[in-house]
Design a binder for these strands. Structure first.
Lengths: 212, 212
DNA sequence: CATGAAAATATATCGAGTCAAGAATTAATC
DNA sequence: GATTAATTCTTGACTCGATATATTTTCATG
């Protein structure tokens, strides 16, 4: 597992994991705001400075795993099959992720993952940072569309619609998970909702929410 | 102008304006991050704590005027005419705002407004806070749709699409303004772009960005 | 081993935001 | 109209996250 790694690199990974573990535990016990970085450093047996050496900010101790997925949508669109629309690619990736119960789209009901989600929802600072990730995700997607030759302005509009739709779908999953439902129970509805949600984009929402 | 106000209320307004004026000037001179709250307090002849009493955070010294518009979209949809779709209402409000050159959608080329916009674009903390406003705007819109009887999950998806589209359009205006174009020059294109952007929603974007 | 580079730490500092207590203003009671 | 009670403003001291600098430790490499 650690072959090919120098001792230094292994130790770096170890301290990184010690920090993540210590932080996760402390946050779960007392909440994000009630734990200071100094305490985390002490629990992981490093100095406070080292924490910031490994993580850009306190929030990243919770959101680091999430950051790896900021490029998922853009990559999916970039690598889509010829003849496939951006919309179809994003929808397809989301549905596939639902089937695979991927935590990145809010489909894991493992207690530890659930705890982290609850922590995020309860902590404004974490929500804000999470939303910044979504913003980066959008930027990357728009960039791909522009590279393909779409007009920048319209590319950003379409990108906002796609990312916004996807985020809303993910948020719906989060709500149900936090309400105690199982991932399997949510999955079926999630796919149906995705068809409806992306369907608004595909079929037009001119008839949606017409005032009676 | 100040009749009906107690001395206390008048002084409150005065210090608020002193704070906004001092902050705006200092930020314009040296940038958001290079000015401390203590300096602003000193310039406004008030203690540091008073600043936070008037404004929730340092960022609000710049973004306070923007906060008044978080409910614009939701209100427009709530008050739309019978027979009109949510999409038509949002599009109509945006186009009308373009015609009126409203700063809230990025259509003012007054130097002072432009300076504030530049400051926001250059400062990550301000961008983040601005995005939080957009989030609130989205929540309010979704709430309206839910009150009208739409399913919460699909209401949030549609709301994300509408708000996302609108934000992307506004951002396009910002970019051109910051590039030096006049509001009048932008307005015509802005309306056309809005028709295309909202058209993606109305007509469906199933044919958009099909890979060749 | 010795040496140079990378990383961890100690220390000091800054700046944003919070807390408990004190000062000022308004309202109420006599 | 003076005195007191209640509310609101203001303040100085403090916590905590984050940064800068310099110093020491740790590891890879010849």
């Amino acid at each position: 597992m650690t072959e090919g790694m120098s001792l230094r690199e292994r130790k770096k990974l170890q301290t990184r994991h010690r920090l993540l573990a210590a932080a996760t535990e402390l946050f779960a016990e007392r909440g994000f705001d009630k734990v200071s970085v100094a305490e985390i450093a002490e629990a992981a047996e490093v100095s406070k400075m080292t924490v910031f050496n490994y993580f850009a900010g306190k929030e990243d101790l919770v959101l680091a795993p999430m950051e790896e997925h900021v490029g998922d949508v853009a990559r999916t669109v970039r690598d889509r099959a010829p003849g496939e629309s951006a919309l179809a690619a994003v929808r397809g990736q989301y549905v596939a992720a639902v089937e695979r119960r991927e935590p990145s789209i809010g489909m894991s009901d493992l207690p530890v993952v659930l705890g982290v989600r609850r922590l995020i929802q309860e902590t404004p600072a974490l929500l804000t940072r999470a939303h910044a990730f979504s913003m980066r995700s959008f930027d990357l997607l728009a960039e791909v569309l522009v590279e393909e030759g779409e007009e920048p302005a319209i590319a950003r509009v379409a990108g906002a619609q796609l990312i916004g739709t996807r985020n809303a779908l993910i948020h719906a999953n989060h709500l149900r998970l936090l309400a105690g439902e199982s991932a399997d129970a949510i999955a079926a509805d999630a796919v149906a909702l995705a068809e409806r949600g992306f369907g608004l984009l595909a079929g037009g929402m001119g008839d949606f929410a017409v005032r009676r």
